[in-house]
Design a protein around this nucleic acid. Structure first.
Lengths: 120, 120
DNA sequence: ATAATCGTCAACCATTTGGTTGAATATTGA
DNA sequence: TCAATATTCAACCAAATGGTTGACGATTAT
C-alpha cells in the first residue's frame, strides 16, 4: 500500500499552478498586500496608499495575485474591492508539507514512480 | 501580551530571504530537483540526466537553489555533490503558517504595528 | 453639465530569468 | 602523457517582470 498522495503533491499536473502561486509570493510588495488584506477587504486605491509606487504598479500586483487565485476582485460602482482568498495557499502549503514529510514514505515506490514519469 | 511573533514572520526584515526562497520554488524544474534530492545526494550530471535541458541550465538552477539555501554543494574530486537543505524551507513555511493563523491574532496590535512600520 | 475620483490600458524602459552554444578548467582513467 | 569526464563560464537570446507616464472609460459628486 503506497502513500502516493504525497507523490501527487510533489509532482506533475498542478505544477503550473504551483509555479504561479510561488511566483506570486516571491515579491515582498505582494506579500505585504496579502497581509493588509487579512485585516479587511480593501479598494485598490487604499491598497496602494502605503506604497511608494504608482497606482498602476499596484494594479499589476493585484492582477498577479488575482491570477494566482490568492485574492479576488469585485467591482461595485467605481470601486474595485480586493478580498483575500487564502485557500489558494493550500496547494503551496500542501507541497511544502508533503516535501517535509517525504522521507517518511516508500522510497522504492517513489523511484518506480519517477521512472514511469520519465518514460512518458 | 501581544503575539508579535507572527507579525515578525509576516513583515519586514527577512523579506529579502523570503523573496529568494519563494522565487526558487516557483519553477517546476527546481521543485523536481528538490524532490530528487530527497532520495539521495546527487552529482550535478546525475541531477541533469532526467531533464531535456542542457547541463549548463541545470547548473544554473542548482546555483539558484544554493543561493536560496535550499541545497548545498560540495566538490569532492571532479564531482560536485548536491545535498538537500530542507531547513531553508522553514522561513517560507513559517510565513505561510503565520499567514494562515493570522486571523487568530490581535488585530489592534497589528494595526498599530502597521502604522509604526509605515511611519519609518 | 462639469469636475473629480477610481482604476486600467498602452507604450515604453531596464533588469532578471531561463535557455542555448562553445570554450575553458579541473580531475580522473588508460 | 593523453583522452575522457565533470562542471562552470561567457556570450548571447527571447521572454517575463516590475516599474514609469499619460491618456482613457466609468462612475460619482457638485
Amino acid at each position: 500500500m503506497v502513500d502516493d498522495y504525497r507523490l501527487r503533491c510533489l509532482m506533475s499536473p498542478m505544477d503550473a499552478q504551483l509555479d504561479i502561486v510561488f511566483a506570486a509570493l516571491s515579491d515582498a510588495t505582494r506579500r505585504r498586500i496579502l497581509s493588509m488584506l487579512l485585516e479587511d477587504d480593501m479598494a485598490v486605491t487604499d491598497v496602494a496608499e502605503p506604497f511608494d509606487i504608482s497606482l498602476a504598479a499596484i494594479s499589476k500586483h493585484l492582477a498577479v495575485l488575482t491570477s494566482a487565485g490568492l485574492i479576488s476582485q469585485e467591482k461595485r460602482g467605481r470601486v474595485k474591492w480586493c478580498k483575500l482568498e487564502p485557500d489558494a495557499l493550500r496547494d503551496a502549503s500542501t507541497w511544502m508539507k508533503a516535501f517535509g514529510q517525504m522521507d517518511a514514505i516508500d522510497l522504492d515506490a517513489f523511484e518506480k514512480f519517477l521512472d514511469q514519469e520519465l518514460s512518458e
